[in-house]
Design a protein around this nucleic acid. Structure first.
Lengths: 145, 145
DNA sequence: ACAGTAGTTGCAGACGCGGGTCATTGCTTA
DNA sequence: TAAGCAATGACCCGCGTCTGCAACTACTGT
């Protein structure tokens, strides 16, 4: 592989990392301030809600949130303590534990989603103004158009 | 703004976040295992090396690494303690502090860069196989082609 | 068939580390 | 004197690693 192709990849990665950091930071502040949840927590609630059966095993969850198994346990425990989701044993394999949103969890999610979308839009528009990030923003828009 | 445009942005963000997490995780493990530096630390070394004058002020550094001022101080201190970079007073404004790579730092960076590039390439190729990430990977490639 | 045993999987707890925030201090510059 | 830059320390949080425990699976020999 030619050297400039590698450099192009590295540069792409730096761009992606920069954009990610900006968005993540904005989301973290807004979600925490307005709804008391971290980005990971919001992600878990969101993923659970999008799930067909509305429940998941811990491992799927940790995969979706890109967290370690241990971190997932703690995150779910936090959310469970706040009454936002519930654990129940998997009937067919009692090692497994399902989690599902409670009504309170769904309520918070629906309250937080506008915040999430607003901040995300703002962050993207913001990044759109920076010459080094603008191309990636556009590419992102085009992905699911 | 139409609802499906918002959903498209949200989906784009989830894709970006997922790809970012995968790459970051791979880089973190490899850089830590093979060279004993975190991604933030590598980033700082790399940014310093790319700099025209090969030195930067703390604030620029914290901006580049997306860290708080406090975290930047601690990070620089760690690297300084390991002899990888050095601090010196900014001659024109003695409130400012410049940091620059030491020969050891440059050495480590040059040893680590192949690791970085290898893992990055592998992570991208890996993501390229996943249908939900492939389009973004391609878009990233095209950015700096 | 069946009990025994080893290995695997799913989750939770303990520990250390790096990061964020806030407040304070020491210089330096305007 | 007021404002700016960096260092430092206290404190809290959340994550990763490693370890442990319980439940399940698969293989073994009788």
């Amino acid at each position: 592989m030619p050297a400039d192709a590698i450099e192009a990849r590295a540069q792409g990665w730096r761009t992606l990392a920069a954009l990610h950091a900006r968005i993540e930071d904005g989301l973290a502040r807004a979600l925490s301030a307005e709804h008391g949840v971290s980005v990971s927590e919001y992600t878990v609630l969101d993923v659970l809600d999008r799930q067909d059966e509305h429940h998941m095993r811990m491992q799927q969850l940790s995969n979706a949130a890109v967290l370690s198994q241990s971190a997932t346990t703690r995150l779910v425990t936090r959310l469970e303590d706040r009454g936002l989701l519930a654990r129940f044993l998997c009937p067919t394999d009692r090692r497994g534990i399902y989690t599902e949103l409670t009504p309170e969890g769904r309520e918070l999610l629906e309250a937080a989603r506008p915040t999430h979308d607003r901040v995300l839009t703002a962050a993207l528009d913001d990044a759109r103004e920076l010459p080094e990030l603008a191309p990636l923003v556009d590419a992102l828009q085009a992905l699911h158009a």
